[in-house]
């Protein structure tokens, strides 16, 4: 618990976190307000697609997750950190907790902004809202995807350690390579990170052999697997700078 608290303090005592999340939430808010407020109702169609947002916050949380791991190596604070806790995996467990928590927190703020703006504008313009149960499902999927993608970024950061390299690797793995699995035979492609998140969002972009829960579990397995590998590597590495 004390290590979780310490990691939480580390996250919020640099401006980076505030700036990144601020920009992302502002962007998501602008999108929800402007798009739902101005676009023709016929084009908006299903409000679900607005609820999942632009992907900006998703990318920011991915990068923030990477930073939770890499800033310690970039600035050499890993040595101080591991002096307090010479056993290293509890520190990484704390970081995992923080990644999940900050993702959940950002998700809750996001839902408040997106739900408040998009839904009220949509219904005030005469759009028909889906059943509450459906909305809850969509938003729950979104919040959980934010928590998991931050953990996913942490895993990549712990493996790669070099800040720029890790950010590029995480974005490439997640976004750039995401069309490739579509080319794979059968439903194999559905198990890749971007496709699994799609299923978690309940979007039908992936061919959708996974339902929302399975999509969430598959992506959680990716995030946890990368974290576990990264933790193993950090526990074995020498800290000589």
């Amino acid at each position: 618990m004390s290590l979780l608290h310490s990691e939480w303090l580390k996250l919020w005592t640099t401006r980076t976190t505030w700036v990144m999340l601020g920009i992302a939430l502002l962007g998501e808010g602008l999108f929800a307000g402007l798009y739902v407020g101005l676009a023709p109702l016929s084009e908006i169609g299903d409000i679900d697609s607005v609820a999942t947002g632009t992907g900006l916050l998703l990318v920011m949380l991915l990068v923030l997750g990477v930073l939770i791991a890499t800033t310690e190596f970039r600035h050499g604070t890993a040595s101080s950190t591991f002096l307090v806790s010479p056993r290293r995996y509890p520190v990484l467990l704390g970081k995992l907790g923080v990644a999940v928590l900050v993702g959940l927190l950002a998700g809750v703020v996001y839902v408040a902004i997106n739900g408040g703006l998009a839904l009220s504008l949509f219904s005030s313009r005469g759009g028909v809202l889906p059943a509450t149960g459906d909305l809850v499902e969509v938003y729950a999927g979104v919040v959980i995807s934010y928590a998991l993608i931050c953990a996913f970024g942490l895993g990549v950061g712990a493996i790669v350690r070099n800040q720029v390299g890790a950010i590029i690797a995480a974005i490439a793995f997640f976004f750039v390579l995401s069309p490739l699995p579509e080319l794979l035979p059968g439903s194999l492609g559905d198990y890749f990170p971007a496709q699994a998140i799609g299923s978690l969002h309940g979007s039908s972009e992936g061919d959708g052999s996974l339902n929302q829960l399975s999509g969430g579990l598959v992506f959680a397995a990716w995030a946890f697997g990368l974290w576990a590998l990264g933790t193993l590597l950090i526990c074995r590495r020498d800290l000589s700078e």
Binding site: S2, S6, T14, H75
Partner: peptide, 21 residues
């Protein structure tokens, strides 16, 4: 040089103090 340049001195110490209770 082993500090995060964007963190204050007090906050650096706080993160360590909290971790060690």
């Amino acid at each position: 040089t082993a500090f995060h340049p964007g963190r204050s001195g007090r906050n650096h110490l706080r993160t360590l103090a909290v971790a060690a209770a």
